[in-house]
Nucleic acid binder design. Structure first.
Lengths: 342, 342
DNA sequence: TTGTATGCGTTATCAT
DNA sequence: ATGATAACGCATACAA
């Protein structure tokens, strides 16, 4: 099965291996006639070039590795699409590797990429610490996406701005009790929180952070406790859409209406957020575009391995949908009312 | 950068390459002392084994290729998780390849897998024709998932049963005008439609098929026309969740309420369908489990390359949520009323 | 245009 | 337990 080698084809076609190699790669140096003949023989013998051997022999591998943190997160799929668009354009093969929700697989997945001798790896949604990433980057040129790490090519959306956009919007809508549903406190991924804090402080409002994990279920559970408290927030900014959907779950479970009883903002503008039922207000970080820029950086890294690390930041956009609404002050002396007096 | 080879380590440790190889693979034949020393030297030299070279040299590659039709479809992510669970257990590396919504990439993606010399490929959501797949399978052992092809290992859920489950449920809920929103008429993927037809015929109801494409947007567009017609269906069975969500879009755009004005059933029980807003009634085909079975078949194919192709069918499950409800007969002489007289 | 020789970094066989 | 050496299938610099 796929046992025939270049040698076989060469012999059968009465030429040397070198010619077969050139013929299959559409390189100059072969007359059109012999190329035809070689390919014909190849088909006849069901020859299939061995990429493994090719990559080992070739000095100029030119391969890009891609690490995807989670196949269930649509944002990453968007980013991947962007990466692939430019990889296709350049005719560069992609080698994929997939992580796992908590980030426990980051290390081994990147290790696999390194051992596969990709020239550079695009890491989408990496969770390992900055220090660990820098360590990896010593042996494997990295381009991190949705994140910024000093000394490493970084493609990201301005998370501080995201935090500001979301929080300011809620405040403008009249909300005062605004909670931030936070991701686990790993390195990186602090911008949204910082933006939230900055705006809350400037507005003289008390921040309220709800720690959670990397899953919709955890988000529903953790925000649930807060929803059951007396001082229930009227606005919630979740660190990403998955978490925001968890908030919607928690609201639904309590008979509360998103966009009516509580306003919710997510982050990423993922496919799920666009759902007619969800209609989640969210912050778009333009995943496809991030992917394209990451691939461009990867290419430039291949072309110039020793160049300085580059940053490629961009601005997020607020997408207003139906889970946010103006805060309407309750009629009686409820906790909400007293808050507004303060 | 990752330039040091086994040779370097061997030299530095004062042993032969062979020993280094054995040491790194935890194979017997190396004394514990020298193994330690070798690994120590390896770390010191930042040595990273070259998988490419290893796979070329190794006779027993034992690698599984995985083709994913679409990164945006959560079902495939579930299947992948299942595949990976058993691959991890067996310590077998996975090589990934990603397709494209219409299926235009099926061919080249499988070709890549073949050229990468994987021992067997698990094809998730393949769209190419049975004939084409059989052709590919001549050179690359295949395990197709969510599909059944004669002569090829097939892991699938009984789609005929899915079609029956969904259609019968709608009929039991009192619906009479039930439409099927169909996927493109490729080879394979006919079961749901056939099940729909069978049940409709048995019930003496006129079937109504709405042809569509592989995307949510197309589904919204195509079902939209039907919704605007006079003989609007009261129940809609969509070939998968993506399409069903498109139906929800179309309903929302017309001010119609899913589960009230029109009942909708999807297929796959994908994460999106569980959304609180969507709350889509759907058919679960247990993706994770499909993935595990596919991986098992792949393993058995590696162990016994010449064995006969095997089928691994399973039964789908109806998941009742909120987009379906009993059909309530309109009061006046509307089209609905006249239908029920007939 | 075509052919030859050498190397790529391993694994695996066969000695020692 | 350890070492020398032949594959593995191809790319490539060089010679013809």
């Amino acid at each position: 099965m796929a046992r025939t080698t270049m040698e076989d084809v060469a012999k059968r076609a009465g030429v040397s291996r070198a010619l077969v190699s050139l013929a299959y790669r559409n390189l100059p140096g072969v007359s059109e006639a012999t190329r035809e003949r070689i390919l014909a023989v190849g088909r006849e013998l069901r020859y299939s070039p061995n990429r493994v051997a090719a990559r080992l022999a070739s000095s100029s591998g030119d391969t890009i590795g891609v690490f995807l943190q989670d196949l269930h997160n649509d944002l990453y799929a968007d980013v991947f699409d962007g990466v692939r668009e430019v990889a296709d354009r350049e005719g560069i093969p992609l080698v994929l590797t997939v992580g796992e929700l908590g980030g426990n697989r980051d290390r081994s997945a990147l290790e696999t990429l390194k051992q596969s001798r990709v020239d550079v790896a695009i890491a989408i949604g990496l969770l390992m610490s900055d220090a660990e990433a820098s360590e990896v980057a010593k042996d494997l040129p990295l381009v991190v996406v949705t994140r910024k790490i000093d000394g490493i090519d970084s493609v990201y959306s301005d998370d501080l701005e995201s935090g500001r956009l979301a929080t300011e919007y809620l405040i403008r809508m009249g909300h005062r009790r605004i909670a931030f549903l936070a991701n686990p406190p790993d390195d990186g991924y602090r911008g949204r929180r910082d933006g939230y804090f900055a705006v809350m402080e400037r507005a003289g409002l008390p921040p309220r952070v709800v720690q959670s994990e990397w899953s919709r279920e955890a988000a529903a559970r953790d925000i649930g406790e807060v929803l059951d408290s007396v001082e229930r927030p009227t606005g919630i900014f979740a660190h990403n859409d998955q978490a925001a959907l968890g908030v919607l779950d928690a609201l639904a479970a309590r008979g509360l209406r998103a966009g009516v009883d509580v306003s919710v903002i997510g982050h990423d503008n993922t496919a799920g957020s666009r759902l007619p039922g969800a209609a989640l207000t969210t912050v778009d970080l333009h995943g496809f575009e991030l992917g394209r820029r990451a691939a461009e950086l990867a290419l430039s890294r291949i072309a110039e391995p020793a160049r300085h690390a580059e940053d490629s930041p961009s601005r997020p956009t607020l997408i207003k949908r139906e889970t946010t609404a103006s805060y309407v002050q309750p009629i009686t002396g409820s906790p909400e009312a007293s808050l507004n007096r303060g």
